[in-house]
Amino acid sequence: MTISPSSANTAADQLAVIDALYRFAAGIDQRDQRLLASSLAENAVSDFRPAAAKAGFEYPVIEGRDVIVTALTAALAALDTTHSVSNPRVTIDGATARLDALVEAQHVSRADPARHYLMKNRYDVELARAGDGWVITRTTVDNVWRSGDIAVLSGI
């Protein structure tokens, strides 16, 4: 099979779009603020409200790369997390893209590793081209299902 240059660029862009979400997840899980920041546009918006509402609590919309990095780092400081991304679907339109993916997020209390909260979330991600790669401009997270001890998310 021969891949034309235009389809090769599309495939490379699709992988680069998905990589932005991988950097986001890995930055959280590895407590790597630089990696997390690399996934986000300067004016990025993170909206966890749909998922939070289903879990029974409120979480504000977070705006700005530095604010998002600081807020997520602080909110998850008492937890060990693992985020697994699956079923990514990418649509590219010039210098913008959309990504829909499922993300399973395990949250484990660092103080008591027997306590956890597991969530399967649908991520609706908007991205912009940034040089050779892509950065997230907006993420909306909705919950599909959840199990475990919700108090873990509060660091309790």
Rank of each mutant, 00 (worst) to 15 (best):
M1G: 15
T2W: 06
S4N: 04
S7G: 02
D19R: 13
F24S: 02
A26D: 14
D32S: 12
R34E: 15
L35P: 09
L35T: 12
A37Y: 12
A41L: 05
A41G: 14
A44M: 14
R49D: 03
A52Q: 06
A52P: 03
A53M: 03
K54E: 09
F57R: 14
F57W: 15
Y59W: 07
Y59D: 06
V61R: 03
G64T: 00
D66L: 00
V67T: 15
I68H: 07
I68L: 14
V69Y: 02
A71K: 07
A75T: 14
A77N: 12
S84C: 05
R89N: 02
V90T: 08
T91W: 02
T91M: 05
I92R: 04
D93E: 15
G94F: 07
G94H: 07
L99E: 05
L99I: 05
D100Y: 00
A101Q: 05
A101S: 15
A101Y: 10
V103I: 14
E104M: 00
E104I: 02
S109K: 05
R110H: 08
P113F: 03
A114P: 01
R115G: 01
H116D: 14
Y117K: 07
K120E: 09
N121A: 14
R122I: 08
V125S: 09
A128I: 11
A130I: 01
D132H: 11
T139S: 14
V141M: 07
S147K: 11
G148I: 06
L153T: 14
S154N: 15
I156A: 15
I156Q: 14
